[in-house]
């Protein structure tokens, strides 16, 4: 019996393929195979020895089946591998590249800013791009024949209708419709008749407004410093200085330490170490009067910023016109 096992082991060692193995299997385990023949002998064994013989023969049968199964699955694996390798392709050839599109850097910057304010609980509002003179100027305390109008070169559609020169009219439109508290930003396109290396006749702004009981200048600083630290990093220096906007009072301009030269002075910051980034102020009570808010009960702040400027600083872009040439080599970089 042990000889039989040894012979089987010798034979299985020399098996070279699935065909050999199949033959081996038939030779030992087939209907006319050696083991089958042994099993058939079982009835002729004396009953006393039959159990032991039966167990031995079954053990050896099981042993052989396992050996054959293991070898079979190994041989099948090798066979498959051989087959697959013959189907091999050049994996170093470039793939069928599906080039995703890129978001325009202006909208990318705009979404980034919007997200920060939305996280602070601001909603997002819109207003018309072609706007009444009333909303664009008068309701914002910029009467006709006022020199403050020189701050914004205006495209006119008619004497009473303009292309909005800033996103600030959305302030008035929202306040007219809604009672305080209001807290929103209004991103969008604005227009001024001006075109050179630093100006395009159309550009983007984000306006913001927060009105409630007890809102003060200190809160204006709190919200805008938080925004700027989110946008430019928590260590960015921020500076508030007085300025003038007819619809806010006190008005402020907000500078950040130059992110190009780390405030050491460069061409971009005109050697001042500071970059102007935001305009803001406490809502002028006159604007509240236009929209029927009681300035004794409510106060608020407004702010606005130009997206092109922020995008230019963020990506070190030196010519604003690149944004509107839409050269794919430029757009693909973002």
């Amino acid at each position: 019996m042990e000889d039989l096992k040894q012979t089987f082991l010798d034979e299985i060692k020399s098996v070279e393929g699935l065909v050999d193995l199949s033959n081996l299997k038939i030779k030992y385990l087939g209907k006319k195979g050696i083991i089958t023949a042994q099993l058939k002998k079982l009835s002729s064994i004396p009953p006393a020895d039959r159990a032991l013989f039966g167990k031995k023969i079954n053990d050896i049968k099981q042993f052989m089946e396992t050996e054959i199964d293991v070898l079979e699955s190994r041989l099948k694996g090798e066979e498959l591998k051989r087959q697959l390798l013959s189907d091999s392709i050049d994996v170093t050839l470039s793939g069928k590249f599906v080039s995703f599109g890129r978001e325009h850097p202006i909208n990318k910057t705009l979404s980034e800013i919007t997200d920060i304010f939305v996280r602070m609980g601001f909603s997002v509002e819109e207003g018309p791009e072609i706007e009444l003179d009333y909303y664009n100027f008068e309701a914002l305390n910029i009467p006709k024949d006022h020199p403050a109008r020189d701050m914004q070169d205006t495209f006119y559609v008619s004497p009473d209708i303009v292309l909005r020169t800033h996103t600030s009219p959305v302030q008035v439109r929202v306040m007219e419709k809604r009672k305080p508290p209001v807290r929103f930003i209004a991103p969008g396109k604005v227009y001024r008749c001006d075109a050179d290396v630093t100006h395009t006749p159309m550009f983007h702004q984000i306006e913001g407004l927060m009105v409630d009981k007890g809102i003060n200048f200190s809160n204006l600083k709190g919200v805008l410093v938080t925004f700027l630290h989110h946008m430019f990093g928590p260590d960015t220096p921020v500076r508030f200085r007085p300025s003038f906007f007819p619809f806010t009072e006190p008005s402020a301009e907000i500078d950040i330490g130059c992110i190009i030269c780390n405030s050491s002075g460069c061409r971009v910051c005109k050697n001042s170490g500071w970059l102007e980034i935001l305009g803001a102020g406490m809502v002028n009570p006159r604007v509240f009067e236009h929209v029927g808010y009681d300035p004794e009960e409510y106060s608020g702040f407004a702010f606005g910023m130009g997206i092109e400027r922020i995008a230019m600083l963020k990506y070190s872009i030196d010519d604003i016109r690149l944004f509107y040439e839409n050269d794919i080599r430029f757009l693909r970089q973002f």
């Binding site: 200048f217 200190s218 809160n219 410093v225 200085r241 007085p242 009072e249 006190p250 002028n284 009570p285």
Partner: peptide, 21 residues
């Protein structure tokens, strides 16, 4: 509001603390 702005100017914008509403 105009007088308050003058007070703020000479008090100093940078001296007003930043505080979230």
């Amino acid at each position: 509001a105009d007088i308050i702005e003058e007070i703020t100017r000479f008090y100093g914008y940078d001296r007003i603390p930043a505080e979230l509403p």
